[in-house]
Design a protein around this nucleic acid. Sequence first.
DNA 1: TTGAAAGCGCTAACAA
DNA 2: TTGTTAGCGCTTTCAA
Lengths: 333, 333
Amino acid sequence: MATIKDVARVAGVHPATASRALNPLLRGRISATTTARVEAAAAELGYVVDPIGRSLRTQRSGIVGVLVPDLLNPFYPPLLRGVERGLRGAGFEALIGSTDNDVRREPELLAVLRGRRCEGYIVATAVLDEPAVAALTRDGVPLVLVNRLTGMPAPAVVSDDARGIGEAIGHLRALGHTRIGHVAGPAELSVAVAREAAYRAAVAEPLVVRAAQMTAAAGRAAGRELLGRGVTAILAANDMIAVGCYAALDDAGLRCPQDVSLVGINDMPLAAWLRPPLSTVAIPQEKLGAAAARLVIERIGDPGAAPQTVSLPTALVVRGSTARSEQRVQLGP
Amino acid sequence: MATIKDVARVAGVHPATASRALNPLLRGRISATTTARVEAAAAELGYVVDPIGRSLRTQRSGIVGVLVPDLLNPFYPPLLRGVERGLRGAGFEALIGSTDNDVRREPELLAVLRGRRCEGYIVATAVLDEPAVAALTRDGVPLVLVNRLTGMPAPAVVSDDARGIGEAIGHLRALGHTRIGHVAGPAELSVAVAREAAYRAAVAEPLVVRAAQMTAAAGRAAGRELLGRGVTAILAANDMIAVGCYAALDDAGLRCPQDVSLVGINDMPLAAWLRPPLSTVAIPQEKLGAAAARLVIERIGDPGAAPQTVSLPTALVVRGSTARSEQRVQLGP
DNA sequence: TTGAAAGCGCTAACAA
DNA sequence: TTGTTAGCGCTTTCAA
């Protein structure tokens, strides 16, 4: 593996000069001929800067730690894609840690990442009042929260769920639905709480059943209970819960969308392939990730900057799981 | 951030001694009292070894590059989980790169990872005859292939698809099916080719339509064509193609499993939640990842070891998408 | 068993 | 504009 010394020797200059010639920030401070010679030598030798040597000298690792609650939840892969692309474009890499929905793993994993000397962190895990996360803020380590609403003075990236939920409820009402229920997520999740609040603000008579987790299994149980209360439409706290609601409808012998309409939140990759295809509030996951990458890079560049919150718009995607309410027919004489 | 010098100063020893006391491999070669003093100092200061300083000195990064074709494909997250757990247990971290099914990105991404001086690579991407991958082997860089059958003398981890496919066909035949079709994957993918071969070996009269990609959309188109040939059961090359086949069945006005039975391959997280729940050949994704991690770590430890291939067993999971053939009834007088 | 010294590859500060 | 020097944090010779 060629080093900067090799490049310098071949180019006939001092290693420091070679280093400078290869540094785009120092363009113009090195003579054109020298730059050309160094570049030729580097190309000839296939030189690639050693990030370890550079890191030791500059005290910068070029690594950002990314903490997600569950790699198996279809919400996160698109997010990670946005994060990776955003970071890589700026010369950073993501070191990904998944807590697998286990709160106890969070501090452990964060310790591993901190051991790797990440320059910043993107945290999308559930628990906010985590002392380890608070410690990051205290230590002045750049930190960006994703999809977590919090009182902490940290920059955050969120989606404008409330607006999307308002649209979804409007859509259902326009179809003639009046008994619109909500399968909420667990109260510990700030997103779940915010979505429930948006739902309550949008309907006259809220009908809420809480799912224990953001999973299909929990959604099925909660959905069954909600159907028992005679709703004609359901807003699920996310697409996985909506998947569970399809099963609950089957359990109850009800058809979607003829008997009950269903709306999810996320627009996960498989949403369009469910049967009927799921109408859902699309969250721009990849953009959320890209925005988080941008924010953390900004903050690495200027740790003192005022924390800003970025809110990205959602979009209602109407597919086949919502239809005109047939309640009138069912109740008619 | 405390350094080894700080620890040494507090413990009243030389930095080299402190380093040795903290190295578990040198246990016993340092006096018990010194070790105790150093450990106490390290604990007091919250010392964590700086991986960058260590890496520069040892020429080891503790990082393994992992190349996957598509983070959005539900096959890979469980695999990555296995890889990460396996690596982390041995003090390594995974640097993940997704080519997003774009063959051109593969060498680029590999260049980025090589720039980060990974100690080894786990490659699960599609294309084998990639010169960049060949270059790794040539350079003696530890490399493990996952789910790619190849003539290359590299260690590999595969699942025993043929056996699982044999079981699946046996299951369908036991249900009375005789016209069992196969939606194959693209010919460029070695897994797809192997699965098709296993299918052909298991049935008397092969009926194959090839999907352009391992996606639901491609599966739908291919499935439609296969249904036109009057099959009563379909083996899909993977679960995503099976998802497309559900749509193809809807398109044709056929019911699953009453009219046509369907079997997938993978057992992705949502497979049990499709309607009807998908019968599928379960691939132990997480175990594949863990095995790949183990192999790459072994190879990093001993680059000269003979490349071994690990084959993991699959398991047929029977759910609701397969049922007794009603062909007799349909053809009866 | 411990200390001294050296150097991994790189680049910032200073000097010329 | 270029060269010289030095040192980031660590571990591993070599010597005591």
